[in-house]
Simulated scan of single mutants.
Amino acid sequence: MAEIIGVVERLWRYPVKSTCGERLDSVEVDERGLAGDRLYAVRDGQGKFGSGKNTRRFRRMDGLLRLGSRLGHRIDAPVLLDPLGSPVADPTSFLRAYLGRDDVELAREDAVSHFDQLPVSVLTTATLDWVRHTVPTAVVDERRFRPNILLRTPPGTPPFVEDTWFGHQARVRGGLQLAFVRASERCVMTGVAQPGLPHAPEILKAIAQHHDNRLDALAEVTHPGPLRVGDTLSLTG
């Protein structure tokens, strides 16, 4: 029998990787993830994508999290927002001036994925409340952790309940099915300042100390479908 694990409280999409995202009321989800999520990125002359860390695919570019992005109804027309929230007319020219680099451009995903790991991130209110309680000096909300889905869990749900979902599938009544695989390994992005959220490095320290630097549930999409705020997510096996 299916077990209800929560209700979708908020949906987030991040059209340009490593910028602030946009809240949605509904979205189509396919094998790649939420439509338009991380579809664009800031790419440098070596083909690396702007991020909060340096890896084989990513280049740390400080300041991106002070920018915003949205898609609206046109996936082929991303809107980049400056630190004051105003749309930028020429994203590539703006990024070159803003970052002080003449080799960057706003690029659409092609053969190399823009995702750090898996396409869908789910975070529960139970775990988010734990962060607030554990780090009372910080301003905490889900934007620190960049989930796609903030899931409202029943009263009494323990923090890190997401860990119990790994290896299981969940579904939404409209047909969407997710397979939970593992948690995200967190980096300095959790404490980086962004609009409305001041610098808070103590958040990452707490997660590292209490939960092996991991937080959320990452999932693959096993069956596409629509997703809406208010949908119930049920664990099926």
Rank of each mutant, 00 (worst) to 15 (best):
D129I: 00
I4D: 14
T125F: 01
T157C: 15
V139C: 15
M1A: 15
Q169S: 05
D62A: 11
G237F: 03
R56M: 08
I203C: 01
L215W: 04
I149F: 03
E31L: 11
L197P: 04
R214V: 06
D216H: 05
F160K: 07
L233I: 14
R144I: 10
D163I: 00
R132W: 01
L64E: 06
D110A: 15
P91L: 04
D103H: 03
P201E: 08
V29G: 07
T164R: 15
G63F: 11
V104I: 00
Q117I: 13
T153S: 11
L178N: 04
A97M: 12
R228Q: 15
A183W: 00
D212A: 08
E185G: 15
A107S: 04
L64V: 09
E202V: 01
L178Q: 06
R182C: 08
V7Q: 14
R43M: 11
L150W: 09
I5H: 08
G191K: 02
V229E: 09
L65Y: 01
D30C: 09
V122W: 02
A77S: 10
R96I: 00
T164K: 13
A2N: 13
R182L: 06
P224V: 06
V122R: 07
V181S: 09
G72V: 06
Y40S: 12
W165C: 08
D163W: 00
V7N: 13
R143F: 03
V79K: 13
Q177I: 02
V112K: 08
A2P: 15
A193H: 15
D163Q: 10
S18T: 07
S234V: 14
F160M: 10
A219E: 06
D37N: 12
L118C: 13
G174K: 00
R59N: 02
P155G: 14
P201W: 02
L65T: 10
A183G: 08
R228F: 06
S93W: 03
A138C: 13
K17N: 01
V79G: 11
L81V: 09
D116R: 00
R59K: 08
D163K: 05
E220F: 00
P15N: 11
F180M: 11
G45S: 13
V120Y: 02
G196H: 02
N213F: 01
P147T: 09
V7P: 08
V122P: 00
D44M: 12
A35P: 05
H223W: 01
T92P: 04
P136H: 09
A183R: 04
V229N: 01
V88D: 00
A206R: 07
P154D: 13
V27A: 10
L65F: 02
E105A: 12
G196Y: 00
T92Q: 03
F115T: 06
H210R: 07
S18F: 03
F58Q: 05
P195T: 09
